[in-house]
Amino acid sequence: MDKLLFGDNQFFGINHMSEEKARAQAMRFQKTDAIMDVLDIAYDTGVRTFMCTTHDRISEIADRVRANPNRYADFTFYPCMPYAHKYANAVTEHGMIGALRQFMPEDGLFSTALAGGKALATKDVDGMAKLLIDMEMKMFAGLKTPVIFVQNVFTDLLLGMGFTRALRIFHDHIREKHGAEPAYITMNMPMLLEALESEGIKRPIICSNINKIGFRMSGGYDAYLDALKSGRVRAIAMSVYASGAIPAEEAIEWIAGLPGVEALVFGASSAGNIRHTKQLVDHYMGEAA
């Protein structure tokens, strides 16, 4: 795993600080060319892993990378699924079962069962989950996707409900069918780690907020540090700047001193920020492979 991963929030109008900035970013990155320009800068700076949601527009990025195998020989995707708003909006629009039907192949077995309002057996839930994963992965066919994440709203919903068996289904299917490493994004890392361990998943890759001021580290700062020190988790840090509250150098120097953090993910739109972050990570965390 590279030490520095490039995130995608900035491309899709997701900004935790300001709706005005979010809209300005959505306008700027309206065309795929604009996204590709920034990805090219990151790639040429040596930031070669793109951690991205399975947003419809990511398929356009995947097409570009697929079409230029020489240019993007080392370009790596870390898909994060599902894109939650796609499902949430569908549930509002079509109801729970209607939404599931939307995302199933039209003439498939599950679609037929759901249309009949039939209760589903345990095995069916497994099959349906696998089918949804495969549908989300379609856009990455033929590309490098060595690590595949469950997106945080989904991870945390399942975690809260106690439906962690679904995370085990994900784990097994990602390994068996996609030959990749399963990983999880969460806002509740210590609780998730315990739940995954009780599902028999050892040393999971977990991406969560990890920052010097404990911003959005639910479960508590100390519990995060204990988990990291225990060696039971392969952590990826996000929100390392705590939405701008911590200066970049101070934030990265602190992260570099933590045990158990294998990488950090960041989002940026300017060449200057990308190069600066890369330099800091190289300096404090050793050359990013």
Binding site: H16, M17, S18, V153, D156, L157, G160, M187, N188, M191, G214, F215, R216, M217, S218, G219, G220, A242, S243, A245
Partner: peptide, 15 residues
């Protein structure tokens, strides 16, 4: 002032 600085941590975060 941002919500991020005005908000207390919670025991469990979802959305």
């Amino acid at each position: 002032r941002y919500t991020t600085e005005l908000t207390d941590e919670v025991w469990f975060y979802l959305r």
